[in-house]
Amino acid sequence: MAAAAAAGAGPEMVRGQVFDVGPRYTNLSYIGEGAYGMVCSAYDNVNKVRVAIKKISPFEHQTYCQRTLREIKILLRFRHENIIGINDIIRAPTIEQMKDVYIVQDLMETDLYKLLKTQHLSNDHICYFLYQILRGLKYIHSANVLHRDLKPSNLLLNTTCDLKICDFGLARVADPDHDHTGFLTEYVATRWYRAPEIMLNSKGYTKSIDIWSVGCILAEMLSNRPIFPGKHYLDQLNHILGILGSPSQEDLNCIINLKARNYLLSLPHKNKVPWNRLFPNADSKALDLLDKMLTFNPHKRIEVEQALAHPYLEQYYDPSDEPIAEAPFKFDMELDDLPKEKLKELIFEETARFQPGYRS
């Protein structure tokens, strides 16, 4: 834990890192770190609560700039109880001085990944967590956004079992017609939660990839272990087919990539493993919904509104309290091709509203 900075004593240090967030945020305490930044909790002297502050230093890398800009653009436009918001952003007053960006968010005690390492969940908890994931996802999908990296560590939890989806750095506007060349190379989302079509096709992607990830998360809540822990690309596919069985001819016809289709045709026939054999203690309604989410063919996979209306979630289902976005989200430009200098300018502009004396 960093010592509390005395008023006016300059930035606090946390594990050798400068955290320049005073005077409003003090009493910093280390939480963890990701690929390009550290997260601390801090005391907000204005709202009198502890908050989470993520320090991001992305400006050396085009990919990190892209992810940072995506996350900020999306989260500043989203407003939903099951999606983490941005409360404040701290950065230098000029673009030349801006080396880091500090993002202030609600402090959540833990995440689903940490929880599943230590606790076996009751059916009631599984049901409530799944409902909140789908409630947040309904809003995301209504904005025409794909999260693309749903996994237990991106689901934040607090002691009252509130759940918030975080990390929109890989999110995209849904565009089933656009052929994202190089899709697989830039697709760094965790393999275990990846839909089979991501490994088999490169053309376009749809909201059904997020539903697949939610199915993987439900299976993990039922058993405290990942359902498809593939060691590499082909191993991942083999794990999936080992449980779902061989795809039907109709399902194979959806695979545009001939090499991928021929690979699947070359494999020995596998039978589907019954879900109640894998999860003998699970609620039968939970397994019915799991089956509809972990469907090989993305066109037959359940959609988020149908999933919310499934009998497993009937005690929570309330369409009048499951809000959607006001308007579909649009990125003005494809960020993939922009140089990091341009992305830095866009991050600077996007964060201006939090600067003292800002006038829109």
Rank of each mutant, 00 (worst) to 15 (best):
I255F: 14
G34E: 13
G10M: 12
N281A: 02
N82F: 00
E334Q: 06
V173F: 10
K117N: 15
T206G: 08
F19H: 14
Q105Y: 09
Y312L: 13
Y25R: 11
K73W: 12
Y128H: 01
N238L: 13
L343N: 10
Y64R: 10
A143E: 09
L28Y: 05
R15C: 12
I302L: 13
Q355M: 12
P280T: 15
S41V: 01
H147G: 11
S41M: 11
D149I: 03
Y139E: 12
V304N: 01
I211T: 13
Y128S: 07
D175K: 10
I255Q: 11
I255E: 08
V14F: 14
R79P: 06
L241D: 08
P339L: 13
F59W: 08
A9M: 01
R172I: 08
I255Y: 10
G136S: 04
R50P: 07
L244A: 01
Q315G: 02
E350C: 00
L308A: 01
N276P: 06
I90T: 03
N276W: 04
D111H: 01
L130C: 05
E33T: 00
Y205L: 12
S122M: 09
N253D: 00
I165P: 05
F228M: 01
Y131P: 01
F329V: 06
L137H: 12
N47D: 14
G136K: 04
I86D: 02
S29E: 06
F78I: 15
K99T: 11
P23R: 01
W275D: 11
L265P: 09
H125V: 09
D88Y: 15
E96C: 03
C216K: 10
L264M: 15
Y113G: 08
A189W: 08
I89F: 13
A9F: 01
D111E: 12
N238V: 09
L252V: 01
I211G: 12
D124V: 14
D332E: 14
R67E: 12
S248V: 07
A260I: 00
Y312R: 11
R77G: 03
D318T: 01
Y25N: 14
K54E: 07
S153P: 00
Q66I: 00
I53Q: 03
V51R: 01
L107G: 09
N201E: 12
E314A: 04
I86Y: 02
Q315T: 07
D124A: 14
N144L: 10
V21L: 14
L218Q: 14
H178R: 13
G215R: 14
A6F: 00
I126Q: 11
M108Y: 08
L218A: 13
R15V: 09
A92S: 14
P58R: 04
H310T: 02
Y358A: 09
Q355N: 03
L134V: 10
I209F: 14
L313D: 05
L234R: 06
Y316D: 06
D100G: 00
H141V: 13
L294R: 00
D235S: 08
V214E: 15
P58H: 14
L76T: 00
L134M: 15
